[in-house]
Simulated scan of single mutants.
Amino acid sequence: MMRLSYLILLTLTIAMFSSCNTKTSSEDHSFKVMTWNIWHGGVHGTKLNKFKKDRSNTINIQKVLEQNEADVLFMQETYCCGMEIAKKAGYVYSSRGNSNLSIHSKFPIVEEVKYLKGRNSQGVVVKIQGKRVLCVNIWLNWLPDYLTYVDTLSVDSIIAGEHSTRAKEMSDILARIDSVNMRLKLPVVMGGDFNSSSHLDWNEKNKQWHFNKILKWPTSIMTMEKGFKDSYRTIYPTPNVKEEITWGFHGEAGYVMSDRIDFIYYTPSMLDVLSSMIVKDDPKGAFFSSDHRAILSSFRFK
């Protein structure tokens, strides 16, 4: 009897010690967010078959999602197949902003924010481990499309082009977020395909990779002026241009023909970023079938 009592006491002691010293993701209030433009609904094949479209290729998008296990997914170019892909990948809750934009979550979506719903954005409130987060999905205009011939343009003409479309759209979205969050007062995670680069990358140290240009890209500047931080650049403050492309390719001469144009921003007053990475590798038994890489960032509530 004494031996049995001793064993029971020992088991309870071990269990108590383990519960005090082992934190689960829910206990430390962390969560992972991914943004990914899946390219025309995820139907493209490989370079070998000239990226031929076929719905059977959507399994490749699904496997990337399953492998990376984000809690919240901002999807761009949802189109024909994105909703079904997300469902098969284990996302129980989904909100479609338009044919392009959708947000998917493994935590409950408790509100769709109508004021943020438009051609370029959508917003929802997600309840994560008892805490609410305002999640905003972004897709900015792809025009002017000059990254592949940016070497021929002056800095002033590039900035003027940005202000003709993307900067206007971003300014409107940020104003709407401000208006909405005066009521909600929530931490914000905003991500998507901005079709625009970052002033944090096009600086003095990296101008040799950017045709000797230093560019103050308006969309990234105005976003950070509103108090947001770039999750990836927070973790990796020193740009490594060759490794950090999210769309495009390197030219034969070594310069970058495209750039980091997909971002996840967050409000640092209420959230800490724990990690961030560019997702670009083929998943096991499949291939990475989008022209955009994904961004995956992990956050913790303060």
Rank of each mutant, 00 (worst) to 15 (best):
Y79F: 15
Y79R: 11
I85V: 14
G90K: 04
G90W: 05
Y91R: 06
Y93F: 15
Y93W: 10
S94A: 15
S94F: 00
R96H: 09
R96P: 01
G97K: 09
G97Q: 08
G97H: 06
G97D: 07
S99L: 13
S102F: 14
S102Y: 04
K106F: 08
K106W: 09
K106N: 08
F107L: 11
E111Y: 01
E112T: 12
V113P: 01
Y115P: 10
Y115L: 15
K117V: 12
K117W: 11
G118K: 08
N120K: 13
S121C: 13
S121M: 06
V126N: 00
K127I: 08
K127V: 05
I128P: 05
Q129L: 12
Q129Y: 12
K131A: 09
V133G: 00
L134S: 04
I138M: 08
W142S: 07
P144D: 03
D145T: 05
Y146A: 02
Y146D: 02
L147A: 11
Y149R: 14
Y149C: 10
D151Q: 13
D151A: 11
T152N: 11
S157V: 06
I158V: 10
I158W: 01
I159C: 06
I159W: 00
A160H: 02
G161H: 00
E162H: 04
H163E: 11
H163T: 03
S164E: 05
T165M: 02
R166L: 06
K168R: 13
